[in-house]
C-alpha cells in the first residue's frame, strides 16, 4: 500500500486553464479539467458517501460548478488539485452533517422518510460481493467528523494540522476525533 500517493496529489493543475482567455473557452477548459480530475473527486465523494453513487454525483457536480465560478479567481491556479481536494472534502462534510440531521427520528417523521432504509442500495449489493460490505457499513456508521478525519489521516496522509485547517477545527479536536473514530472502527470490524 502506498499511502503517500494521496488524492490531492493526483489532482494536478490543468495547463489548459492558463489558455482560457474568454468566456467561450470556459466549456473547453472545464471539460479538460473534468476529464483529468473527476476520478479523484469522485473517489473522495464515494468514500465519504459510503459508496452511494447518487450521493457522490451531487457532490462532484457541486464541486465543478463551484470551480466554474472560481476558475478565473483562483489564488494559486497551479494548486488546482489542492483546491478540489479541500472543496470536495468540505462539501462532503456539510452534506454528511445535513444528512445526519435529516436522519434524526423526529425529522424523518416530519419528512415522512420512515422506511426508506429498508431496501439495500445496488452499491451495497456490489460491495457485498466484493466482501467489503462490512467495512462500508462500519464507515457509514462513523459520525461524519470521525469518518472524515480517519480517512484523511489514513487514506490521504494528511496531518492533523492540515485537517484542522480544511475543516475549521483545532488540532487537538482533530486528534480527539481521530482517536474516537479509530476506536469505533476497531469495535465495528472486530466484533
Amino acid at each position: 500500500m502506498n499511502r503517500t500517493e494521496t488524492s490531492s496529489q493526483a489532482l494536478d493543475a490543468h495547463p489548459a486553464m492558463n489558455a482560457m482567455t474568454s468566456e467561450e473557452d470556459l466549456a473547453r477548459v472545464l471539460d479538460g479539467i473534468y476529464r483529468k480530475h473527476h476520478r479523484a473527486v469522485f473517489r473522495l465523494a464515494l468514500r465519504y458517501g459510503a459508496g452511494n453513487e447518487a450521493w457522490a454525483e451531487d457532490i462532484v457536480q457541486d464541486v465543478f460548478v463551484k470551480l466554474i465560478d472560481h476558475l478565473a479567481h483562483l489564488e494559486d491556479p497551479d494548486d488546482l488539485g489542492g483546491w478540489l481536494y479541500r472543496v470536495t472534502t468540505r462539501r462532503c462534510f456539510r452534506k454528511l452533517e445535513r444528512d445526519r440531521f435529516l436522519d434524526l427520528p423526529l425529522v424523518r417523521t416530519c419528512l415522512r422518510f420512515l422506511g426508506d432504509a429498508a431496501t439495500p442500495a445496488p452499491e451495497a449489493q456490489w460491495f457485498a460481493r466484493q466482501d467489503l460490505e462490512r467495512t462500508r457499513q462500519a464507515l457509514e456508521r462513523l459520525p461524519p467528523k470521525q469518518r472524515l478525519v480517519v480517512c484523511m489521516v489514513h487514506l490521504d496522509g494528511r496531518t492533523q494540522q492540515e485537517i484542522g485547517e480544511i475543516l475549521g477545527m483545532s488540532k487537538s479536536y482533530v486528534c480527539k476525533l481521530l482517536g474516537r473514530g479509530l476506536h469505533r472502527l476497531h469495535e465495528e470490524l472486530d466484533a
Binding site: 500500500m1 469522485f42 473517489r43 464515494l46 453513487e53 462532484v60 467495512t135 464507515l139 480517512c151 470490524l189
Partner: peptide, 15 residues
C-alpha cells in the same frame, strides 16, 4: 481496519 478501509477506497469508482 485500516487495510480494509484502503481496500474499500480502491474499490470505489463511479460508473
Amino acid at each position: 481496519p485500516i487495510e480494509r478501509l484502503v481496500a474499500l477506497d480502491r474499490a470505489l469508482a463511479p460508473s
